[in-house]
Simulated assay, not measured.
Amino acid sequence: MALESKICGVSDRAAIEAAARGGASWIGLVFFPPSPRAVTPEQAEALAAATPAGLGRAGLFVDPDDALLERVLARVPLELLQLHGSEAPRRVAEIRARFGRPVMKAIKVAQAEDLEAVEAYAPVVDRLLFDAKAPKSMAGALPGGNALSFDWRLLAGRRWPRPWMLSGGLKAETLAEAVATTGAAAVDVSSGVESAPGAKDPALIAAFLERARSL
């Protein structure tokens, strides 16, 4: 089975075109203004319209209220809602039921105990995403996209009740090790294909996806 890849935090057509050429399965649009990758609903509408058939559109939200989700979904045909904040399982279930879209919940990992959250979220999501938890000492840390990885050995040999993606500090040079260690069938990259925070580099996207195709 081919490795499924998501290029998250795209904000221009060049990144979308590179993702499509490289065989990505998903692009991610970030609706979290503090992020350097954030787009407005209006910008996202244009980007979604430029996304070729077969390339899924995910929207990344951080503790969104219903008004924000309604505003975005009125303009942007998202196929997946990625929740990357501190949303409780009950809130995740509410969003999934109300908006009728598949939901992926990020589980932030620094130690083995962090994986215990899967038990509560698995019944109310369609997918899980394992990302690195930023240390409390990290200045300006975002909910994701901090170019941090976690100890991939924490996922080795584990099985989960939902499909899942691996994220957190991935790049072309480390992808093979990450996949071999964790057994991931799907990966999510953002900072690892950027020339600067928020600036996706088509060449880095191409290199990452070429490596992904080889695995």
Rank of each mutant, 00 (worst) to 15 (best):
T40A: 03
T40H: 01
T40I: 03
T40G: 00
A44V: 07
E45S: 14
E45H: 11
L47F: 07
L47N: 07
A48K: 10
A48F: 10
A49R: 14
A49V: 05
A50V: 09
T51Q: 11
P52E: 12
P52I: 12
P52V: 12
P52Q: 11
G54H: 13
L55P: 13
G56M: 15
G56I: 12
A58K: 11
A58D: 10
A58G: 15
G59S: 10
G59H: 05
F61D: 04
F61V: 07
F61I: 11
D63V: 02
D63P: 03
P64T: 07
D65W: 00
D65A: 01
D65P: 02
D65T: 02
D66L: 01
D66E: 13
A67M: 01
L68D: 00
L69M: 09
L69A: 06
L69Y: 02
R71G: 10
V72M: 05
V72I: 09
V72D: 04
V72Y: 05
L73T: 12
L73R: 10
A74K: 09
R75P: 05
V76G: 06
P77F: 13
L80M: 15
L80R: 15
L80K: 14
Q82C: 10
L83A: 08
L83C: 06
L83F: 06
H84L: 06
E87K: 02
P89K: 00
R90N: 05
R90E: 14
R91D: 02
R91K: 09
V92S: 00
A93P: 02
A93M: 00
E94F: 01
R96Q: 08
R96L: 05
R96V: 06
R96F: 04
A97R: 15
R98Y: 04
F99M: 07
G100L: 05
R101N: 01
R101I: 13
R101L: 14
P102M: 08
V103W: 02
V103Y: 01
V103C: 05
V103R: 03
M104C: 14
M104K: 13
K105R: 14
K105S: 02
A106K: 07
A106G: 13
A106R: 11
I107K: 02
I107F: 04
A110I: 05
A110F: 06
A110Q: 15
A110T: 11
A112T: 10
E113A: 15
E113T: 11
E113S: 14
E113L: 12
D114N: 08
L115S: 06
L115C: 07
L115G: 04
E116Q: 12
E116C: 01
A120Y: 02
A120I: 03
A120P: 00
A120R: 09
A120C: 00
Y121E: 08
Y121L: 11
Y121S: 04
Y121W: 07
V124I: 06
V124Y: 01
V125I: 05
V125Q: 01
D126A: 01
R127N: 09
R127Q: 14
L128P: 04
L129Q: 12
L129N: 11
L129S: 11
F130I: 12
F130H: 12
K133R: 15
P135L: 08
P135N: 08
K136A: 15
K136I: 03
K136F: 08
S137A: 15
S137T: 15
M138D: 03
A139V: 11
A139C: 00
L142C: 04
L142W: 05
P143Q: 07
P143C: 05
